[in-house]
């Protein structure tokens, strides 16, 4: 294996960092511009149900406290400079720093997404391989039918079905939340957490299987049609051995790339799954921020999700470079 030169690596890292900086700057500017045109009054969102008890002067005081009486551009620069210093503002509905809210909630979501990501990747890849090896036969048709149906299934509805069947009827899994209701944090053991994680993760992975399986199937079929497979067959290789020796690596790379590039869909799916199962993660926070008009939290989550998707794409990129010798030689000159 060729050794990566240090300067090429440095250039790669710097380029990606510059890209990320530009992206985050653009996303925050665009999102801020959008939000400042929203008809939803942030003061109102802050007051919430106490409308009757807050007078005009108090409203003005609240607006001044949050800096809402300044023009949008001034607010943006204040917000952006605070952001650059690591301060993302204070969430209106949780009444604590946005960074804390995101940090706390992200771990729940991360656990959920990681479990779903692994499950869907392994199952999808296997299903794709099996389908391609049995091209045109019943197994292949079943896999394809399953994938196409799942691709048109509303994921939140699937979550509700799981909830009804496994949660309500069979009673195998708890109906919601990440820990038993009312339990202290110290009393919650791993088994409980896993039991609460199972249904959301299952939903999320069921949705993620389809793209990987279909993509893997296509790629493996491409490979199986190639000349070197014909040659291998003419030497007498066949079945699983043939695929394992000549096809697996070629199919694995696109599948991995797709899985990493699918962080965006994963995040969106997590929002819905968390909503159905009342799972306290980032997705639920995003929904609440949107519904109740918590602008600082919404902005924080928008930026964080951009970072998350960027990370996925970056990992896909690195994976491609590490595994695929063609890209490695083109992309990182010595």
């Amino acid at each position: 294996m060729e050794k990566l030169s240090f300067s090429a690596l440095l250039r790669f890292v710097l380029l990606k960092l510059a890209r990320l900086g530009l992206l985050l700057a653009a996303v925050s500017a665009a999102a801020f511009a959008l939000v400042s045109y929203s008809p939803i009054d942030p003061v109102q969102a802050y007051i919430g149900a106490d409308v009757m008890r807050v007078g005009a002067e108090q409203r003005a005081a609240i607006a001044a406290y949050w800096g809402l009486d300044e023009p949008p551009l001034a607010r943006f620069f204040r917000w952006a400079s605070a952001l650059a210093g690591g301060d993302m503002g204070t969430s209106l509905i949780y009444r604590q720093p946005v960074a804390d809210v995101i940090g706390e909630r992200f771990w729940g979501s991360l656990l959920l997404m990681a479990a779903a990501w692994l499950l869907s990747g392994v199952i999808g890849f296997t299903a794709g391989i099996v389908a391609a090896m049995n091209r045109g036969r019943l197994v292949d048709r079943i896999v394809r039918w399953y994938c196409c149906t799942l691709a048109s299934t509303p994921s939140f509805w699937l979550a509700m079905l799981f909830l009804m069947v496994f949660g309500v009827w069979l009673g195998w899994f708890p109906v919601g939340l990440a820990v038993p209701a009312g339990a202290l944090a110290a009393e919650v053991d791993w088994l409980d957490r896993l039991r609460h994680l199972a249904l959301p993760a299952l939903t999320l992975s069921a949705v993620g299987i389809a793209p990987v399986a279909l993509h893997t199937r296509e790629k493996l079929l491409d490979v199986l049609d190639s000349d070197y497979i014909l040659f291998a067959r003419s030497r007498g290789e066949s079945g699983i051995r043939l695929v394992r020796r000549h096809g697996l690596k070629a199919a694995l790379l696109p599948a991995l790339t797709l899985q990493f590039a699918g962080f965006s869909e994963l995040f969106g799916g997590a929002v819905l799954a968390e909503q159905v199962f009342s799972y306290p993660g980032l997705g639920r926070a995003a929904v609440e921020a949107g519904v109740r008009g918590d602008v600082p939290l919404l902005m924080g989550i928008v930026l964080f999700s951009a970072l998350f998707v960027f990370t996925g794409n970056l990992l896909a990129d690195i994976m491609t470079r590490l595994i695929d010798p063609r890209v490695r030689e083109r992309g990182m000159p010595k």
């Binding site: 939000v35 929203s38 965006s264 969106g268 929002v271 995003a286 949107g290 008009g293 998707v309």
Partner: peptide, 21 residues
């Protein structure tokens, strides 16, 4: 196009639905 792809669809949807009230 990259900018729009850089956010999860659902997050963009929440943002825009919020902005439009």
């Amino acid at each position: 196009a990259d900018l729009f792809l850089s956010l999860p669809h659902l997050v963009t949807l929440i943002l825009i639905a919020f902005v439009c009230g």
